[in-house]
Amino acid sequence: MIQFQYERVTTAKAAISGLANNSNARFIAGGTNLVDLMKRNVTAPTKLVDINMVPLKDIQQQNGKTSIGALALNSAVADNKLIIEKHPLLSQALNAGASAQIRNMATVGGNMMQRTRCPYFYDTALPCNKREPGSGCGALQGLNRMHAIFGTSDKCIAVHPSDMCIALVALDASVVVAGPKGERRIPFEEFHRLPGNQPEKDNTLQNNEMIISVEIPDNAFNKNAHYMKVRDRASYAFALVSVAAALHMDGKVIKEARLAMGGVAHKPWRLKEAEQALAGKPATEETFRQAAKIAMQGAKAFKYNAFKLKLGPNVIVEALKNAAGLV
């Protein structure tokens, strides 16, 4: 491991100034991804600013929204009574991710900041534009079974690995970030970005900004919500395809729907057109199948991930059926 500076801070302000003047400084919280990346020589920060002591672990309800501190642990959020009651979709998504041990270390902010699990990104002997811009995309012509079908570029077809973020994008969350110039809010859908010509950039955080919290507006999706994750083993694996589905029901009719997919794009993939197609329709398998068809428009497969074109809509339908209580 390459030698680095380590600084422990207790306030957000100190954390932010800890990054100043060093583009190679990184925050560390649970370290469940960053430490792996350092061990594999994928990333070599010259400074780590440990933010675990910054008091950002609170989960609270006020002014029509639920606010979750950036340093709240994944397991603490998943098990939180308020979250289970008001945003069960988020709790389910968190519990579908990683392992109990990792959830006990990983934070909400860290979960959002985790890098892709593309194997070409992790092996420094292989090309990867995300790790080493200009070196090429190993996955494009390679073993791309796990890779994206939406929003890809010829520079990168990696997927965003989080489960939590799929629920958060579906729930219209916003991200509160603080930087040298003060606080701002980023709609969750705009937090992560598509690879385009800059796959090395995963998100829209500016230099020296820090995630403070995530806010979820109050909603009526807590009665009919389901997170479904299909993976290569029953637990502790990244999604082949996952779907966050939530319905606001009026009797047997869908008043409003929320739908997002994981394992299919470089960012949590919100399906707004499919949501619109569901609104006002009866909650039937036929309705769901139609919405799934709309959801998959524009999907493009590569050599080994064509199955996602079929699995994707199937998981959408299954997730919706579960959300609607049809299963």
Binding site: P119, D123, L126, G138, L143, D232, R233, S235, Y236
Partner: peptide, 25 residues
Amino acid sequence: AMMDHRFGRYITKDLADYHVPVHAD
């Protein structure tokens, strides 16, 4: 253990990518 034959290198080479059964399996 999947290999990318263009490089002759395994791409599933840790216990996150090379899946052995977990308790739930």
